[in-house]
Design a protein around this nucleic acid. Structure first.
Lengths: 146, 146
DNA sequence: CACGATTGTGTTGTGCACAATGTGTTACGG
DNA sequence: CCGTAACACATTGTGCACAACACAATCGTG
């Protein structure tokens, strides 16, 4: 471990995460294609299905994404007719994102998609929850280093 | 689990992977900035430090990336003076990527970087290896679904 | 050898991710 | 009030990921 040799790619945690993340989002790509949305767009919809309305700031806090990523992404959701963007009347700096009826209706697809993803992992629900918890802990830990 | 309710973002394995992958590559960004290379560029260098020379195809097989991603990435490494690109004389379809002396020399930084990443995770070596193994298994499993 | 299929690479176009910068808004200290 | 700092959001530019397509070189089979 304190060995000076460079460990091969496949044995490093970073590559495992990088590779797994890409394969999972690739699986989502297939499942979401019929709905016409991408994986990050789907994450935004997941939040809105939960909260009804969110500001760009709140979306960024949950997803750990900045406005440079979210702003054009949300505009594409607007073009698709899934969300509306309105300036807050109380604080005109704030843009509130809300679901349209079409965006709301799409939530009915979510359980089926989540189920298919779980099935694709080949892990049981208990193992999956444990793994998810460990990965989340690691992410939090690394983020605190910044 | 077979509940119809949509599980919040933070409890889904996909978001854990997505978020953890971004936080880890973010940490690499800081560590690699002094070297002037990005995280995917660093992955290519890791392979070349191991093999000396690789074709674009071989890089793609290891990294699960296609030529549309690798081709411009490798060209940027060439502009940085870290690698050379030469057509194979045996089969002119093949482009071989090799390290320059400058690219080779950079390998001395690798152990230090890997060590700092491990430290950032807050996990012990044994736990980390176990987690890495589980994530890699999940990635392979999901990929087979395609 | 001829010829269709396959393979390795490159190009183009779309959509993230993120840094750096710009613009307008609110809030605070005097 | 005024000025200024802090804040929320948008814009711009670079690099990655991936699909779709193009093209040249090679291979397999008759």
């Amino acid at each position: 471990m304190s060995d000076e040799a460079i460990r091969p790619l496949e044995e490093q945690i970073c590559f495992a995460l990088y590779s797994a993340s890409r394969s999972v989002t690739g699986r989502y790509r297939e499942l979401l294609a019929p709905l016409g949305v991408t994986y990050p767009q789907y994450l935004v919809l997941l939040i809105l299905w939960e909260t009804g309305t969110s500001t760009v700031r709140q979306l960024g806090d949950r997803l750990e994404l900045d406005s440079g990523t979210l702003s054009p992404l949300v505009k594409r959701l607007q073009v698709l007719g899934l969300v509306t963007r309105t300036r807050s009347t109380l604080d005109e700096r704030v843009v509130e994102i809300s679901l349209t009826p079409a965006g709301s209706a799409m939530s009915s697809e979510a359980p089926r998609i989540a189920e298919q993803i779980c099935a694709s992992t080949g892990f049981g629900p208990v193992d999956l929850a444990g793994l998810q918890q460990q990965i989340a802990t690691l992410a939090t830990q690394v983020r605190q280093f910044a």
